[in-house]
């Protein structure tokens, strides 16, 4: 038996474990079922195998083995496509859709998690081969911790202050604080909206976050997250009962109007705060100052 069998197996196991740690099912409910999880664990296994095998191959001076990793890259780009297609198809039948920005964010996360698995298995195998299994274990724990840290991402509560405001009507116009949401003509609908509706004001903490929460995809993600957690008071055929988030053009605040089944203010504020800031929505206009003077690099 080759000297590298145990290091490779060790690397693969560490990679798969790290993939499983990154595969969490929470209130956002994705991936929900066993089949979805099996797909991702299987891909994680392939990723970790590629990472683990690359190390002994390179030590044996089989430099062409590095081309293996290009196979991995195209394989995982395919993962991103798969996730995007599945979620986009499902989104059509959601009462409150995720939105393309959120879907793209999830798809990118799934692809990048596989790369983290490759790095984990590569480094642990390397540590095992060069030093000892104990060093390998330490490196594996370090990598998993790092992966967890990297996958965390930002939360909305870091960039905005959230405040509850009772929605109200001025004639037929629905308002959250002074932000106009929509026109609802029928008195019966207005009563329903006031009975079940909740309003929140998201106040950006700085100029960068003002642009981030202005992104339509980010706003849709907030609405989706609230309604996954608290339920939604709407159905097909009741288009007037629609959750919306609108912007105050003067100061960049966003008024969020939602129709949850469970009217729990604290929980809702908590959920809005825990909504991920989508990396595709993040804007940093203030960073531009660094490039002044024509040097863009």
């Amino acid at each position: 038996m080759s000297d590298y069998v145990y290091p490779i197996l060790f690397g693969i196991v560490c990679g798969v474990i790290s993939r499983m740690l990154m595969l969490r099912t929470d209130y956002r409910q994705y991936p929900t079922y066993l089949h979805g999880k099996i797909i991702h664990i299987a891909l994680g296994f392939i990723a970790s195998a590629l990472g683990a095998i690359a190390v002994p191959a390179l030590i044996q001076e089989e430099y062409t083995a590095i081309t293996f990793l290009t196979v991995a890259a195209s394989q995982f780009r395919e993962v991103r496509n798969m996730e995007r297609n599945t979620l986009a198809q499902l989104d059509q039948y959601e009462l409150v859709s995720r939105g393309n920005t959120y879907i793209e964010g999830i798809a990118i996360a799934f692809e990048s998690r596989n790369y983290l698995v490759i790095f984990t298995s590569m480094l642990t195998t390397l540590a095992y081969v060069l030093f000892h299994i104990i060093v390998g274990i330490i490196v594996a724990i370090g990598c998993m911790f790092l992966s967890k840290l990297l996958m965390g991402g930002g939360k909305l509560k870091d960039i905005v202050d959230i405040e509850y405001v009772e929605p109200h009507f001025k004639k037929e116009g629905l308002y959250v604080d002074n932000i106009y949401i929509m026109n609802i003509g029928l008195p019966q609908r207005q009563e329903e909206v006031l009975k079940y509706g909740m309003g929140f004001i998201l106040k950006p903490k700085n100029f960068n976050s003002r642009s981030t929460i202005a992104n339509l995809g980010q706003r849709q993600a907030i609405l989706h997250d609230i309604h996954t957690a608290l339920g939604v008071y709407r159905d097909s055929g009741t288009p007037a009962l629609v959750p919306l988030a609108k912007r105050d053009l003067d100061d960049g605040r966003v008024g969020v109007f939602v129709l949850p089944q469970e009217k729990n203010i604290e929980k809702a504020i908590d959920i809005i705060g825990n909504t991920p800031t989508l990396e595709n929505a993040i804007r940093m206009p203030t960073k531009r100052k660094k490039h002044e003077g024509g040097n863009i690099s």
Partner: peptide, 23 residues
């Protein structure tokens, strides 16, 4: 309002009020 409620459900659209006289 009554006709507006019915049409809203049938047509899957939202009843908006433009003025007191027109929806």
């Amino acid at each position: 309002y009554k006709i507006g409620g019915n049409l809203e459900a049938i047509l899957d659209g939202i009843a908006h009020s433009i003025s007191d006289e027109i929806m």
